[in-house]
Design a protein around this nucleic acid. Structure first.
Length: 216
DNA sequence: AAAATGATCAAG
DNA sequence: TTGATCATTTTA
């Protein structure tokens, strides 16, 4: 099925089951418009679902409602950016209808940018990227660094123009999605056993390729 | 293996 | 008010 590359994902996309959204995000393009007007793009290749009040790894586990996670209780389609270890930021996308908390952590993107696309002189996109010294997107905080996503992006409407998603130009084949347990959530006990991490098989940008046994 | 580093949250 | 805890990354 042909889909126009530049089509922006609508709010209805996010207002669905969190696990479904996490899978469907693979292959889509994360787009960041900087204050300067420059456009950065990254193809999402790895996500994790955080499924709300019954998920021990979720910031809304047991329905604990705080100032930080308040946005989880609103409608899907907004950015949730939080600081981790005092040093880094992570990007979550709020899912589900209003009053149903849920979010998807973006763990890795294959990085592109408008500037690189314009300035490529015969090199492949990855070569151009290396030459320009742009960072990699193979980790939840590394992609935030590369795409200049920080606390100021918290709460942004993904249906706006500063941070949004575009449908991918390659349909994501179900058989090409790997399912694994989520990363670094040992504190979640049994919740750490759920296979709620998804990534595109074979992508060079996946953060940890330790585990590829399952095929859907 | 462990440091870097600060917001957040629950306990006291 | 305080102290433990991180959905990480880098360096050794």
């Amino acid at each position: 099925m042909f889909v126009k590359h530049t089509e922006k994902l609508p709010r209805a996309f996010y207002q669905r089951n969190t696990l479904q959204v996490a899978r469907d995000l693979l292959g889509t393009y994360l787009v960041r418009r900087l204050p300067s007007g420059e456009i950065l793009r990254g193809r999402i290749v790895e996500t994790e679902a955080y499924a709300g009040i019954y998920d021990p790894a979720s910031h809304t586990y047991r329905d604990r409602r705080t100032e930080r996670n308040e946005i989880w209780y609103g409608e899907g389609g907004f950015a949730y950016v939080y600081q981790i270890y005092g040093l880094y930021f992570c990007l979550g996308l709020i899912t589900e209808p209003p009053s149903v908390p849920g979010a998807v952590l973006i763990r890795a993107v294959e990085l592109l940018s408008g500037r690189q696309a314009l300035s490529t002189n015969g090199e492949s996109a990855p070569e151009a990227m290396a030459l320009s010294g742009v960072q990699r997107g193979d980790g939840p905080s590394k992609l935030c660094l590369a795409m200049q996503i920080d606390r100021r992006c918290n709460g942004l409407d993904l249906c706006g123009d500063e941070l949004f998603l575009e449908v991918g130009d390659t349909p994501c084949q179900f058989a090409d999605v790997v399912f694994t347990p989520r990363i670094n959530i040992d504190y979640a006990g049994a919740g750490a056993l759920s296979y709620w991490r998804y990534y595109l098989r074979g992508s060079p940008a996946v953060s940890k390729k330790t585990y590829e046994p399952l095929r859907a």
